[in-house]
């Protein structure tokens, strides 16, 4: 889009701000015990206030209530959504985005307030307005705009019973999308992501192959016996290219560490702590500290490592508190 085209497009979508999506509508079903029970059943919700009349009557609730999270359910359009959804103003707005290449749609946030518990027999009326459209944003999913709608809910007495703000992102999908792009294996199940493995070349393959067999090796110069890690083809002390290796006992001490909070990568288990560990043999290794809370790790902590399978495809040394 040229700057002029972008401005014309943004003016067009911003004109929707403040418009009602449709006239205030009464929900197709009033609050009722059957729909409450069906919902609680699927959700595995055993709250007796929703389904146990005897209990509910005696409790401070004074009778059955609907789960507050059902608020929006009372006004859903239902089966027509599958084949012939109503062409309301919100869909019209989405179409404008679609036509300009922002075809992706993703619900990003909801914010609900429930003013009172709803009970069987209550009517629920919904009135939705397009409230905000953001500036253009670069998001992880791609470039797009956030659209915020506000729905106010009222009852048979025209009293407010709740409010829901709903935010969606209309975006141009990135080509290089993240895990949610999803690999599609034969059974339709995405493959569980695994840790990012090291490529194996001439100078490091032997080391990773040993890890696959449960051992952590340290490269040793055959000429002057100096240990070195990570492996490299020549001894920096005597320039010999002859080497062998010893197996580490994996007794070590934390030299430094960090807890990784953000971003979280698929295939890794959080909380996740990485550390520089000084091994008893004198070299250092980078690994994870596991088997304790992140806040219990400290510099100088004694640790003991072992090689473990950490996911379907990955063997790695992992270090535990030594005691």
């Amino acid at each position: 889009m040229t700057p002029e085209e972008r401005k014309a497009f943004e003016d067009k979508v911003h004109a929707y701000v403040g418009r009602e999506v449709n006239a205030p509508q009464k929900g197709k079903d009033d609050v009722n015990k059957a729909m409450i029970r069906h919902w609680a059943e699927v959700m595995g919700d055993e709250n007796p206030a929703y389904t146990d009349e005897e209990y509910a009557a005696k409790s401070s609730k004074g009778g059955i209530i609907a789960p507050p999270s059902m608020l929006q359910i009372w006004s859903m359009e239902g089966y027509p959504m599958a084949h012939n959804p109503s062409q309301d103003v919100q869909r019209e707005l989405h179409n404008v985005f679609d036509e300009h290449g922002f075809a992706g749609v993703l619900g990003t946030n909801t914010s609900a307030e429930y003013y009172r518990d709803l009970r069987p027999g209550d009517e629920v009326h919904a009135h939705t307005v397009i409230d905000k459209i953001s500036e253009q944003k670069a998001t992880q999913r791609g470039i797009g705009y956030f659209i915020e709608t506000v729905t106010n809910f009222t009852d048979q007495n025209d009293e407010a019973v709740g409010k829901i703000i709903f935010r969606v992102l209309k975006f141009t999908p990135n080509d290089s999308n993240d895990a949610t792009g999803g690999d599609d294996s034969d059974d339709g199940m995405p493959e569980a992501p695994t840790r990012i493995a090291s490529p194996r070349g001439h100078d490091n393959k032997w080391w990773w192959d040993a890890v696959d067999e449960g051992k952590v090796l340290i490269q040793r110069c055959k000429s002057c016996q100096t240990l070195r890690h990570p492996p490299r083809p020549m001894c920096g002390e005597c320039q010999s290219i002859e080497w062998d290796s010893i197996e580490s006992t994996l007794d070590g001490e934390v030299f430094s560490f960090t807890e990784l909070h953000y971003p979280k990568f698929p295939g890794y288990q959080y909380p996740l702590v990485c550390a520089v560990i000084s091994l008893g043999e004198g070299t250092r290794i980078i690994s994870n500290i596991v088997g304790c809370e992140p806040e219990d790790v400290y510099i100088g902590m004694k640790v003991k490592g072992k090689v473990e399978q950490v996911d379907e495809k990955t063997m790695l040394p992992q270090f535990y508190p030594a005691d």
Binding site: L272, C274, L316
Partner: peptide, 12 residues
């Protein structure tokens, strides 16, 4: 990639 391979499997 070999260099970063000493760190990526651990999440660093």
């Amino acid at each position: 990639a070999i260099h970063y391979g000493w760190y990526t499997p651990y999440g660093l």
